[in-house]
Nucleic acid binder design. Structure first.
Lengths: 216, 216
DNA sequence: GCAGGCTCTAAGCGCTTGCTCACCTTCGGG
DNA sequence: CCCGAAGGTGAGCAAGCGCTTAGAGCCTGC
């Protein structure tokens, strides 16, 4: 087992005492409450179907309070998207930079990336499916982060091919397929469903390894 | 090769003279023009970000014209979603009902399903990603069609396991993954990109077969 | 040749939207 | 003990929304 991200392969936001606390970097408290409310609302109804009154209401504040902490509704989406993409990229880069064979690193990458999309499917849904609602400038910034996520996975595949572990005729296409498979978890995953995030991660890691492993 | 939809396993909407003509079943002409305009607008901006004025404008008509042919904007989405899901289900059932080994049928299913999502990615984007905008009643109807699509793919996998062709420990989970992989093509496929729908179909069919084929 | 139905438009209604503004409260520092 | 900054509210503005209505144009059948 690799320990690429420092503390025993964790993939959730945790403070030193082990308490799970996403969006901990957003301050002050009121700004975080608004942002968390926005994530829920955007994930449930989509960005365009969500009103600023709904967001403020979920946060227990008046509509005007939103504009003390954020210039526009789109800035809220951008902050969510930015933080989420940073996290996603970190997960993939940690796996790509880890030690072990290419197969072990690919297993870790898919496992943790899928687990994040399942555990944080509310956030992930916004991050992965509301890109089009961003302004031109913000979207460009986010697309660059996605390009780097793609590069991290492609690097693992290339390493595996070079080492003879993998048989992948079309590395860019397969990279796309692997990421696509993981991302789509955010669309269908249901917390009330039968599978836990860990189970989905294990299943998907197995399926992806079969896709790329050289037949003996 | 099966002939479930009449003429030699085709996956696009064609008239007898071979001309490609989707939405041919929508009449009269003005209603079809409005529907095609709605598909484009919904795919580009999303259902909620699209205005009835935009749809009518793209169709070269006044905003009020829309309400002669459709009761509400949501009815337009429902018609699109219904026709699209019928088509998707037909593609998968034709493949599942076809002759040949399970591997051949799975190859055909993925190939044609992916090709449809790529060729008709505008339509597919609306069909696959705007479900939440449907009314309760309409969504229930559509979800039933999706359940049947799922059943068609699961049947192929079960057949393959029974015949010893496939090694699939988790058939429902793998069914979900296969469909998820194909569906997500609608999200990322770009007509200006490097790959043709046929190429993506071939790549994906290969990847899926590797996921399920028993190792020798 | 005109009655009646169908298709379409110009105008606009009632409402909701993202966002603003004048004002109120709270609170640490001189 | 008052002060000014920071965080919050109620009311509301301009714009845009889905949808309706009154009536014009144009076919078709008798």
């Amino acid at each position: 087992m690799s320990a690429a991200d420092g503390t025993a392969g964790q993939t959730t936001d945790e403070t030193a005492d082990g308490v799970d606390k996403p969006w901990g970097e957003v301050t002050p408290e009121a700004a975080r409450k608004l942002l968390v409310a926005a994530v829920e609302a955007f994930a449930e109804r989509g960005y365009h179907a969500t009103t600023t009154r709904d967001i403020a209401g979920r946060a227990g504040m008046s509509p005007a309070a939103l504009y003390i902490h954020y210039k526009t509704k789109e800035e809220l989406l951008h902050r969510i998207s930015r933080i989420g993409h940073d996290k996603a990229l970190k997960i993939l880069q940690a796996a790509a930079d880890g030690s072990g064979t290419a197969a072990e690193r690919l297993d870790g990458a898919v496992r943790s990336f899928v687990r994040w999309h399942a555990e944080r499917h509310t956030t992930a849904r916004v991050v992965q499916y509301e890109l089009d609602a961003l302004s031109e400038e913000h979207r460009t910034e986010i697309v660059e982060l996605r390009r780097r996520s793609d590069a991290a996975v492609r690097r693992i595949l290339n390493d595996g091919v070079k080492a003879g572990e993998f048989d992948v005729p079309d590395v860019p296409g397969t990279t796309l397929a692997v990421l696509s498979l993981c991302i789509d978890v955010a669309r269908w995953f249901n917390a009330q469903g039968r599978r836990t995030p860990d189970e989905v991660g294990a299943l998907y890691a197995d399926l992806v390894l079969r896709m790329v492993t050289a037949q003996k």
